[in-house]
């Protein structure tokens, strides 16, 4: 089954790129690996036939948000010496904590029984196409959609207000 193979390869590449985000010493490399991760996640969305979200993920995440991150990194002009060091003890404790978290999640999710009604599982789900999602978004979810515009304008005003602040000294 070629589609299953492609999905599994995309999943493995996603995990590898996500590990590189966390482990890269240089923040710019982390940003670039995160862009790669988002590309692989978009590939997984396409494999699930969620075409609208795949494109939105690329445009909003890999396009807009990551450019914002890169812009801030370039603006701050950080060099390698500015990179904070992590103590070895933190590495050990964080590894144990993350491993435990993973085991707890898997143990909790291992025994779930998914309720499938007849006709729920279809061979190719067409729900992720632009037309179907648009119908749902602009009928059932039109109020949250309008409220999200208020969220955006408050975030924009807040960001401008914060960034415009005069320089003060803290002692």
């Amino acid at each position: 089954m070629i589609a299953t193979l492609i999905t599994q390869i995309l999943g493995a590449l996603t995990i590898a790129a996500a590990m590189m985000v966390v482990l890269s010493k240089h923040p710019v490399r982390s940003v670039l690996y995160l862009v790669v991760t988002f590309f692989f996640i978009s590939g997984l969305y396409i494999m699930m036939n969620a075409q609208f979200l795949a494109i939105v993920n690329l445009i909003v995440y890999a396009g807009a948000i990551m450019v914002l991150f890169l812009f801030v990194l370039m603006l701050l002009n950080l060099n390698k010496e500015a990179e904070p060091k992590t103590p070895t003890l933190s590495w050990v404790i964080a590894s144990i904590a993350a491993g435990t978290l993973f085991i707890v999640f898997i143990a909790a999710l291992k025994d779930i029984v998914l309720v499938t009604r007849p006709g729920d599982q279809v061979a190719v789900s067409n729900i992720g196409l632009v037309k179907n999602l648009g119908n749902t978004l602009f009928t059932k979810y039109v109020v949250p959609f309008e409220i999200s515009s208020i969220l955006f304008i408050s975030a924009m005003v807040g960001a401008i207000l914060l960034a415009k602040r005069e320089k003060q000294t803290i002692d």
Partner: peptide
């Protein structure tokens, strides 16, 4: 879990 691990080990805010 990888994201949570990153939050635990990295000190850089970005």
């Amino acid at each position: 879990v990888i994201g949570a691990f990153g939050v635990m080990i990295r000190r850089n805010m970005i």
